[in-house]
Design a protein around this nucleic acid. Structure first.
Lengths: 155, 155
DNA sequence: GCACTTATTATGAGTACTTCACAATAAGGT
DNA sequence: ACCTTATTGTGAAGTACTCATAATAAGTGC
């Protein structure tokens, strides 16, 4: 598959060696976007059963530093990875079931990249603005319509 | 101090009992915004030495659920807490030293609250849009100007 | 193609942060 | 003041991730 070639040359251009572990992790992330390290391990092991969890962590960290992967951390969730990098897309997480969707920014450009600073603060040079939407997906909304489950548990 | 009264009535209005542990945690968060649980424990123990770490975790979770506190989780950091709730402010984190600043949204209104969905996705009902800015604060920028530290370590 | 250098991975242990189960305590209504 | 039950303390456990070091293998030069 030509996919492998692309990953291989990308790795080369970053001065990294092309290993079957890296290729397996990249393919696993590609085919399972928004997956945690554990899920990536499981997916990659279908191709490479001897792959270890620790290697997955090392590879994911390194490729994230190289910007070949993108990492984001929803609340109360392990870090999730995806291959979609270089654009300015963001994420929506369902607070009920945890499903994740990609979203582009509504305003059509990088959101809020020039924040308004308080007078007493020292402005930072902003490099990234990550937006995390939290809401309820259609499936979970439908479930909450059910009479017996309308009540939200409030201790 | 009248601060205590306000917390007490807020707790009452949520059907919670007013305990010295809760008041100590609230005061600690108030006076140390953007602090992790450990920092809050240390601050609260100045007033209440017998307070335990586990109680701090329980209190923080509960008060966050009640929206009396707000929790956010910068990458590679434990969760941070603040008493500033109910407005739509966001956070800027220095990727070098970790310092956190509050920022209001540049566009003057809730950012990107109506995201643009892909055609093949099921839109969610968005409730929150958290924006996390990442950049370099003025102090760290100054440090990186130093000749011997100009080079970024790139393995 | 073969040896060599060194990046990369596997192994095994360890850490940080948070949560859980359950007993002890104390807040607030009667 | 008593009683009910929310809340806290105690001690242990769990998840996600990292570290140190030895084994392996990618890519270079011969």
């Amino acid at each position: 598959m030509a996919e492998q070639e692309a990953w291989a040359s990308a790795l080369h251009s970053h001065g990294r060696r092309v290993t079957k572990q890296r290729l397996a992790v990249l393919a696993a992330v590609q085919h399972n976007p928004h997956s945690p390290a554990e899920g990536i391990l499981a997916a990659a092991r279908k191709d490479l059963p001897e792959l270890t969890a620790q290697s997955v962590y090392v590879v994911l960290s390194d490729l994230t530093d190289l910007q070949m992967l993108r990492r984001f951390e929803p609340p109360h969730s392990p870090a999730l990875y995806e291959t979609r990098v270089g654009d300015n897309h963001h994420h929506a997480v369902c607070i009920s079931c945890g499903r994740v969707e990609d979203v582009d920014c509504a305003v059509g450009h990088a959101p809020c990249l020039t924040p308004h600073w308080d007078e007493d603060s020292k402005p930072m040079t902003i490099q990234i603005a990550d937006v995390l939407y939290q809401g309820i997906c259609q499936d979970c909304q439908a479930k909450q319509q059910l009479p017996t489950q309308t009540q939200v548990t409030t201790k």
